[in-house]
């Protein structure tokens, strides 16, 4: 697999995975391993001061996996900036999945607030990977202010609907000067493959793996599909036509008619 470079870091895997919604840390760790990813997303939440806290970071080998803290829960730029600073203090690294989702029903990102937060965080030295609607104009504005990627959604977070925004993501890819990571809504390995065949640089998957009947096997399926899609993109698709084009010779048939 050809390497993907984001900021100054090289990745051999083009599948990033989330760590939410798993039945246990043990299954999460096994699925992460099966995915062969090199970057995992995590969220920040209040410590539960009334009961015992499960520390999920002990389940993640930080020598193998780069942590990508997200700003989930942020409803505007200022909340996202606060979470970003906390994430940096907690993780010691400046990578960040920037997400601002004021609408709890569809969890669609607020582009205006995301752009505003990105401007501040890039200046503060964060490596910003913004989660956005599949909006080509916004994607350009974000790359212009210095985000490390753009991460357009395929469909609403956790919906598993697949690549509903295909046409807009194609435009984003055509215009991008930074890697394009298709994030959210990919429900099946074939969706990931489709995104990669289009020329996406990577995909980010959580729910489709974590809530599958066998998350570990599904993680492997996404790994293979992501690789297959990338190889297909690099290979260049064969031309499409409306009529058939025989694969076998049209001469030398075993018959006498003409």
């Amino acid at each position: 697999m050809d390497k993907l470079t984001i900021a100054d870091k090289e990745f051999t895997s083009r599948l990033f995975v989330g760590t939410g919604k798993y039945a246990s840390n043990r299954i999460m760790a096994k699925a992460v391993e099966a995915s062969a990813t090199q970057m995992v997303t995590v969220a920040l939440r209040r410590v539960d001061i009334e009961s015992e806290n499960d520390d999920m970071l002990t389940a993640i080998d930080r020598d193998k996996y780069l942590l990508l803290p997200n700003t989930s829960g942020a409803r505007d730029a200022s909340e996202a900036i606060r979470l970003a600073r906390l994430a940096r203090a907690a993780s010691g690294i400046n990578w960040l999945k920037l997400e601002v989702t004021p609408d709890p029903y569809y969890l669609l990102p607020d582009g205006e607030e995301t752009l505003e937060a990105a401007k501040v965080l890039v200046k503060e030295g964060f490596i910003v990977l913004p989660y956005i609607n599949a909006d080509p104009i916004l994607a350009k504005k974000l790359q212009d202010v210095g985000t490390a990627t753009v991460m357009p959604l395929a469909s609403p977070i956790g919906s598993n609907q697949g690549l509903n925004t295909r046409a807009s993501i194609e435009i984003i890819i055509a215009q991008a000067t930074v890697p394009v990571v298709v994030d959210a809504g990919l429900g099946l390995p074939s969706h990931a493959a489709e995104a990669m065949e289009m020329g996406a640089d990577a995909v980010l998957v959580n729910t489709a793996i974590a809530t599958a009947s066998d998350p570990v096997m599904m993680a492997k399926a996404f790994k293979l599909a992501t690789e297959a899609g990338r190889y297909a993109f690099l290979a260049g698709r064969a031309p499409m036509s409306k009529t058939a084009s025989a694969s076998s010779p049209l001469t030398g048939f075993l018959r006498d008619d003409r």
Binding site: G18, T19, G20, K21, Y22, N25, M28, T41, V42, A43, L44, R45, R46, V47, I49, N53, D55, M56, L57, L67, P69, N70, S72, L86, A90, S91, I157, G158, A184, L204, N206, T207
Partner: peptide, 10 residues
Amino acid sequence: IELIRFVGGG
């Protein structure tokens, strides 16, 4: 005082 930690997330 806010005490915050990492949890699983996407």
